[in-house]
Design a protein around this nucleic acid. Structure first.
Lengths: 333, 333
DNA sequence: CTGAAAGCGCTTACAG
DNA sequence: CTGAAAGCGCTTACAG
């Protein structure tokens, strides 16, 4: 039914080995034969079967990207750049959304092991340890992105959450804010932990006291941002600034502020990690810590392919710098 | 090196055929043998090789989703529901972002053919005809989503763009707007064509004249929305309402309005297709035509798997109804 | 520069 | 209920 290498070989009067070599540019094939093969391929409308070649060569040229939240634009950007970089190198990428659910993550990893993917990129959930151990046990290479995993020494690409939080908090303090709240994700997620640490350190560096009641630990989603900000903003005394630890939380804060008829920056300052939708950024409204999400994606693929080519090279943990984008949301520009 | 069926068979004292049957629940295996196999699988830490099973069975249980713009939340939602529905049925999905670029689409289709995917879902670009013909020629089943393709009679799931545009335009006319502009994507994309048609028909139904200068045909992106709205809003006389044909265009319009210091709905009404980020919707700000994007994704997978099981069934073109969500953006609530 | 043989790890088709 | 044989469509390893 479907056309195979043998058909092409028969039509061009050579063996299938030769056809294979010609199509893969591996080994020598005379120019004359190469041309006859090209003609046969075209006439027969031959499409190589990569399932067969994967089985024999033990390489699928398939990668996977596990990410915790596909509705978060940060992850969409990472996904896109990962896909672009992988495609350039002849790899396809299976995208898996784990929804921060370790059991969903575990199930995906089982499926991917069966498919014999060549490697993966993992934005881990807060209990990825077992799943990742399983990958290692089966000799499947992977690179962590955005978040390292406690007790696991593997390649990792992340941005400098600590420094970003430090910078943006200091900016608030230096522009005269006294009661700065932080709304963040779970402390089990390293980025959240680092952002709180940066927030605390900046206070210390500026000689400001920390108020535990201004630290809201929850999850990296809009509904948490809304809830925490609603509580905060209707409390008394009200904070004079909020630091949202990612863009979804910031959206929740904006929603809460609007509901309570509070204006930014007139009534309260707002800063955040990650970019918000263009309407807001277009007016340089929100002061934000910008992560190099596109670079993170591309670099992650580079590390992974590098690892595949050279399994024994040293482990690399890369922390990319972030950029503070100053808007009007601190009431100081 | 890696554990195979044969190893499991040897350890449990049966043939590999029996192990295969036990693991796949195909054919009879005695309970006793089944248990011994389970033990061997666990002890050996066996992970089936689906590359091998795909080669033999000629089914990969791999699907692909080609979509034109991953930064558009409409497509993200479709992608997510497609992935969920496929996973439930034991299929993995390769996500491919074509960027509305027919050549990128063509290249993806070549790669996917090689990988012998079982089927695909395509949100086609405006020149998909050749690529899709190629799929058909190779007997690969696919379902179109969101957009039909001229001259191609295949399964398709879309929403009722014509009706949505008709409803939202009529709503504007009935609330007293006289000069309604529409900013839309290319006329080669069916949704864009249908939305303009609905816009025109609503005018006719209400006895309003159409002004060609108020129809802005471009592309489904924010920069086009910004540009078209900037031109429109600084023109004279200014329209009293703008109908943005998707949410990215609507964001561009909002950006332009803000730049020109125009307020919505005080200075100009704005309506759009698709949902905008929650900050806006939370206040029921923008009157929008809501497409059932999640249902579209799930239904598409159902049609595709149905087609795989039953290649000869009749072609289904399904048009799902849309919902008009009335906000304050028309200045009438 | 080219080819005959073997084999990747499964499932199918047949037999008992 | 179970198994021996064959084969899916390639690439590898060896030989010439």
């Amino acid at each position: 039914m479907s056309v195979t290498l043998r058909d092409v070989a028969a039509k061009s009067g050579v063996s299938s080995v030769t056809v294979s070599r010609a199509l893969n540019n591996s080994g020598y094939v005379s120019e004359k034969v190469r041309q006859r093969i090209a003609v046969a391929v075209a006439e027969l409308n031959y499409v190589p079967n990569s399932v067969a070649s994967s089985l024999r060569s033990k390489r699928t040229r398939l990668l996977a990207l596990l990410l915790p939240d596909i509705t978060n634009p940060f992850w969409t950007t990472v996904a896109r750049s990962v896909e672009d970089a992988a495609t350039e190198q002849g790899y396809a990428v299976i995208l898996c959304n784990t929804d921060e659910d370790p059991s969903k993550e575990g199930r995906y990893i089982e499926l991917l092991l069966r498919r014999r993917i060549d490697g993966l990129i993992v934005g881990p959930t807060n209990e990825s340890f077992e799943s990742l151990k399983r990958l290692m046990q089966h000799g499947v290479h992977f690179v962590l992105v955005d978040r390292r995993v406690e007790g696991l020494s593997v390649d990792c690409v992340k941005s400098d959450s600590y420094d970003g939080a430090h910078q943006v908090t200091r900016h608030l303090l230096e522009t005269g804010h006294k009661r700065i709240a932080i709304i963040t994700g779970p402390m089990t997620v390293p980025t959240s932990k680092d952002r709180v640490a940066g927030y605390v350190a900046a206070h210390q560096a500026c000689g400001s006291a920390i108020n535990d009641k201004l630290i809201f630990v929850g999850s990296y989603c809009q509904s948490w941002g809304f809830k925490a900000a609603s509580d905060l903003l209707s409390g008394n005394p009200c904070p004079d600034a909020i630091f949202a630890a990612n863009s979804l939380i910031a959206l929740g804060v904006l929603e809460a502020a609007r509901t309570l008829n509070l204006r930014i920056p007139d009534d309260i300052a707002l800063v955040s990690f990650d970019e918000l939708p263009q309407i807001i950024v277009a007016n340089r409204f929100l002061t934000s810590v910008i992560q190099p999400s596109e670079d993170m994606g591309r670099l992650t693929i580079r590390l992974l392919l590098d690892r595949l080519a050279n399994p024994d090279r040293a482990i690399q943990e890369i922390t990319l710098p972030v950029k503070l984008l100053i808007g009007t949301s601190c009431g100081c520009s």
